[in-house]
Nucleic acid binder design. Sequence first.
DNA 1: CATTTTTGCTAACGAACGTTTGCTTAAATT
DNA 2: AATTTAAGCAAACGTTCGTTAGCAAAAATG
Lengths: 202, 202
Amino acid sequence: MARRTHGDRRKTILRVAGRLFSQRGYYGTSIRDIAAAIRLQGGSLYAHIASKEELLWEIVDEAAQAFLSSLEPIVRSGRSPVEKLRLAVAAHLWVVTERQDAAVVFNHEWKALSPRRRADILARRDAYEALFREILQEGIEAGVFRADLNVPLITRFILTALNGVAVWYRPKGPLSPEQIAEAFTDWVMRGLRRCEPPETSG
Amino acid sequence: MARRTHGDRRKTILRVAGRLFSQRGYYGTSIRDIAAAIRLQGGSLYAHIASKEELLWEIVDEAAQAFLSSLEPIVRSGRSPVEKLRLAVAAHLWVVTERQDAAVVFNHEWKALSPRRRADILARRDAYEALFREILQEGIEAGVFRADLNVPLITRFILTALNGVAVWYRPKGPLSPEQIAEAFTDWVMRGLRRCEPPETSG
DNA sequence: CATTTTTGCTAACGAACGTTTGCTTAAATT
DNA sequence: AATTTAAGCAAACGTTCGTTAGCAAAAATG
């Protein structure tokens, strides 16, 4: 059976820290806040963690991994640009809704990291954005997306709008991640595609 | 001539506080940080301000005013929905680029306000969003925008993408606010409009 | 020029911060 | 049952926080 309690506490701490960091920010959350949320004394956390920044790092690092590892196979697949974009949007929204706190912290609190770790996260954020740009670029070169798109700019618009979902999404709200993905894809795609007569009637 | 220095110092403090709050966040910026940036001692600021939160409030309140007062006349004008949306996007981006720090602080640091002030800001933020929704709704009812748009959702996407510009925009960068507005409007509008043959040649 | 007001300094306040220490209890291992 | 290991507490460390008090220089006002 191995051990039961060991590591569980640590995961609880990480989960609670993620929630508080996402709600109040890194500097707005104290070690004692995190401890109190699981009915511990502040100092007791240090039996499980090395430092407050380590907590932030683990949350942000895990989010970076989640984003990158979900997008890479899509970009590398042999699908069409349109299909790639559709999947990429869905994948991004999957991470954003399934790991909401980590996504918010990843997007808003990376500045609180040490310079070395901040640089690491920024590099991976850039790599992610570059993968997204690749899809748009490919679509342009394949002639399915309009050639006059400002790819870096539009990519940023898309990613910003998608990341914003992490801030307002509520699992018990009226919209499922799939519905959000569909509405977003549907709307975004129209802005990208070259003008063609509609395929369906209506 | 009235007084020369009076009020200047205060405005300087507000400007510097806005910059630091936007770069490091409210909790990540200390009174001594702000003071040091204008070569003063921490305590000296209190000859000009009542509290740190007052600084945050003035920045956020001013931004709220700027956003609302720039959008209201557009929504109330007799223009077409398409023209209203174009102007609204341009106005939003004008505020966001011209008062960049305040816009970032308005979007990211309002949580640090006292409950009463936070509620005030949230109400005005909601009012702003409602004005934006009105434009989309009007466009649907006029038959120029697609009827199947999820208006609250798309409005959120648009505003989030626009607010994101406040984070990455650089006045000395390659893109002017006007270029950003044009690319954005151009792209967004295609996702909203009902399919029609283009009116203009080219 | 005298005086009031503004501006800034130094020093300190009490509170909260992240973190460490030493001790105790509980759990797991032999 | 004895012993090692893990988990948590209470208290304190040194630092930084927002803010205040008392005093000095500078500027504006009469």
